[in-house]
Nucleic acid binder design. Structure first.
Lengths: 134, 134
DNA sequence: TCTGCTATATGACTGACACATATAGTATAA
DNA sequence: TTATACTATATGTGTCAGTCATATAGCAGA
């Protein structure tokens, strides 16, 4: 049910070139937060990402690669779950180091939001005064 | 790798690895906005960027490349200024197309800020309730 | 002359991301 | 039984912003 392959280009879609304006590495803190809430496997994380971030179909390739990279860095650990139906699932769990990393990310994101606000403030200041001027 | 254990963050430095958590292509709307305020050459834009975005020394390589790319795309136009002392300066001026692009960027950035808010809300919701639980 | 500031520019590399594709297990309907 | 759809993990490749290093040249003052 995770249709990552259809891209509808309606008006709410970005005018600027794709990829621009997004936060670099934003999938990383989301994965860590979702794992902090509850251990999960990749496919489930993909679905939860699609809801919370309203990102319609996060790229599976990026997701699985990010998880494996996290494991290499000790931010998560994994085990195979062969219970239930369907193929075996690799279940991820966040580590203490991963939690620390998540908190650092939160600080980072607050800082990024301030930068955005600073831009928007200056943008509006300029174009409001430009509006007054005519 | 983000060695958060060894080095206490000296407030201005980022905790997570460099480049992460920043907005992709964020220099682009800044340049367009600064040029919308007033035509300028690269070096001056670099200094104004350092003030407004409090980014201490934006990378000159990226800045000049971005400006030339903008010119190729018709977002800005340039002319040489040989007046005054020092080396000749290439003075950039924003075009109508550049203004349009800037406005599209502003929409994009508002959307990005909403995404950040959504993350921070969920982050705080989780860790506040986790605090209550102990 | 040597240093330092102004000013523009290129080359090499990295990391996040997009897009395509491969793989296999399971369930269900034709 | 075959076909298909869904679940689940994974790799390969290319793009692009960002980082760092370096090259260049004009000009000014010690």
């Amino acid at each position: 049910m995770c249709n990552s392959h259809h891209r509808e280009q309606d008006e709410s879609e970005e005018h600027c070139c794709p990829g621009r304006g997004r936060v670099r590495g934003f999938m990383q803190p989301w994965l860590l937060l979702l794992l902090a809430q509850k251990p999960a496997h990749g496919y489930e994380l993909m679905e939860r990402l699609g809801q919370d971030d309203e990102t319609p179909g996060a790229d599976p390739g990026l997701l699985y690669r990010t998880l494996r990279q996290f494991e290499q860095e000790g931010l998560v650990r994994s085990s195979w779950d062969t219970e239930g139906s369907g193929p075996a699932r690799r279940v991820y769990e966040i580590t203490d180091e991963g939690l620390e990393y998540l908190h650092a990310w939160a600080v980072n994101i607050r800082r990024t939001r301030e930068r955005l606000d600073r831009f928007l403030a200056e943008y509006q200041a300029h174009f409001q005064s430009a509006e007054e001027g005519r």
